[in-house]
Simulated assay, not measured.
Amino acid sequence: MNSVRSIEPGAGGGPSPGRVWYMSYGSNMYLERLACYLAGGRPPGAARGYPGCRDRGMPAASVPVEVSGAVYFATESPVWGGGRAFYDPGAAGRVLARAHLVSAGQFADIAAQEMYREPGADLDLSEVLARGRAVLGEGRYETLVCAGQLDGLPVLTFTAPWGIDEVAWVPPSAAYVRFLCLGLLEAGAWDAETVAAYVASRPGAAGYWTARAVGELIHGSGPGGTVV
């Protein structure tokens, strides 16, 4: 098993670095899925494809991390059908995630594609590095968050401007749940039982997905959308 890496608190400030850790807590934890954002393509089960980044290389490293806060499912994804994963750093709880070491340009292009924008423009990271948070717009995934530092580089992600209790929770689809689970398992720090229990207990999934149903989905023995 791989060890979970510790993230040092604090945004850090200073000039924008050439490389950053992109912390994924959703389907981009799975490298095959992330590759569609980096190199372009459409992942299995998704309703749309992605143009890819200017730099189409894979991450220099990908490590398992845990951070404070909560992941929940809300809004309706036209890609997956069902709720999307969002991160509330101010909520109580612990988040299992994966940090990918990418260039600042790749992070900007991944964020643009999540925002349904054309990739190609760099992001001004000065505010998120100085304050730990930067709101670029009112839409989902238009708020940048710095979760801390890892190996001297900022750990960045994006989420919604609202909090976990300010939006209706929506159950995620089977395809989306499966990619989340595969990404966590691929990280090598958590076993299938832990991953299934974690995903099934997230707000939006809880009461719709059970740990057993998620486990069956992981192992491929359950039908898509096995629910209670």
Rank of each mutant, 00 (worst) to 15 (best):
P161I: 13
R140W: 04
A70Y: 07
L96K: 10
R42S: 07
C146L: 08
E166A: 07
H100I: 12
H100Y: 08
P15Y: 01
D191E: 14
P223G: 01
I110V: 15
Q149N: 04
V71P: 00
E66H: 00
W80Q: 13
E166M: 04
A35G: 08
A60M: 06
A160I: 08
Y22D: 04
G224N: 11
V199I: 15
V228Y: 09
F73I: 12
D109A: 02
F158L: 15
P44C: 05
S77W: 08
A11W: 13
V228S: 07
R117G: 00
P171M: 14
G224W: 15
S6G: 03
R54N: 07
A11P: 15
A92M: 12
T157D: 01
Y176H: 13
E186I: 14
A11G: 12
G148P: 04
M23E: 15
G139R: 11
G12I: 10
L31E: 15
R212Y: 06
P43C: 06
F73P: 02
S24Q: 00
Y116M: 08
V128S: 03
H100W: 11
A35W: 12
D191T: 11
S62G: 06
T210F: 01
G12C: 09
P43L: 09
V102L: 14
L34H: 05
G207A: 06
L125S: 05
M29Y: 00
L96I: 10
Q113N: 05
F107N: 04
G139Q: 04
I7D: 00
A189T: 12
D55E: 03
A74W: 02
W169I: 09
Y30M: 12
A91L: 11
A134M: 11
D124T: 09
V199G: 06
G225N: 06
A206R: 15
R42G: 05
G137F: 08
G139Y: 03
